[in-house]
Design a protein around this nucleic acid. Structure first.
Lengths: 146, 146
DNA sequence: CATGCTGTTATATAAGAAATAGAACAAAAT
DNA sequence: ATTTTGTTCTATTTCTTATATAACAGCATG
């Protein structure tokens, strides 16, 4: 399994799991239609509780990344932009809010427009590839560790 | 005072306060050397507890945005990039981590490089101005309200 | 000098979030 | 029939958030 959990991190476990599943979808390691491990088996593999995995799955379902149809298991949904309008609008709002906060912190720290744009460029290169195909990326844990 | 608190928001009060002070510094409403209200008076104005304000101030001090020299009060520090190296490095790391998570969420939702770049451009216009001088900006509360 | 204000520290309490634990149920697969 | 699935419920523990007091030392102003 692609996921690893840092028990000492300040980021809640269910969020670490959520973020890494999002990263796996972004990287194409999880494609639309792919099944995810059962909450029990994944919890066992990671050494965490069933309910913690369930909470991560439920978050991803609420955000539109996963479909959970009864006992058939959790399945990666088709991209937000193709399907549900409310989910896409919510995602766009979170993107703008997140970017705005980061930009304000950057400017308050004396950073200029160019410095921010440079950071964005390097991140986009890492996530989308520097023009060619992209491999796997590390996932930020919210802020470092313990 | 420039700050307003939403008691029902899911973002903790001390973080709402922290974010809005960061925004005020970014907007130039608070310049290096400016004094901030005492923790007691601001807590009184906002109708919140002394320790909640203190926590926000302490966070901003730890991040390098404020100086708190004994009983002289809290003062806006000179920009991170000019002063402490560790604070600047920490800020850069948080920026990259934050951008990476947002970019991964965007890509996982089916968004392309261009869409992300467009969102960044609009946010930078809002924060830095569309080429000319900049006024005051709204502050994202982490995610909307209640 | 005394009074009041400052930041700081300590302790206590209450509410909520996060995580774990154990149990149970209906639906589906073997 | 047994197992496995997601889902739901209750319970407990720990941590965070927020509030409420109280006290102390430094500094300024009256």
């Amino acid at each position: 399994m692609f996921v690893h959990i840092d028990q000492g991190a300040k980021t809640p476990i269910y969020l670490q799991l959520r973020n890494q599943i999002v990263a796996a979808i972004a990287a194409g390691e999880l494609a639309p239609g792919d099944s995810l491990p059962s909450v029990r088996s994944l919890a066992g593999d990671l050494g965490i509780n069933l309910h913690t995995v369930n909470k991560a799955y439920a978050s991803l379902r609420d955000e539109g990344y996963l479909l959970m149809r009864g006992r058939a298991g959790a399945v990666v949904a088709s991209p937000l932009r193709d399907s549900s309008v409310p989910h896409a609008a919510e995602a766009e709002r979170r993107l703008i809010d997140g970017l705005t906060l980061l930009a304000l912190e950057h400017k308050a720290g004396g950073g200029g427009r160019e410095g921010f744009a440079a950071a964005v460029a390097s991140v986009l290169d890492a996530v989308y590839g520097t023009g060619a195909g992209g491999g796997s990326r590390p996932v930020p844990s919210g802020s470092s560790d313990r």
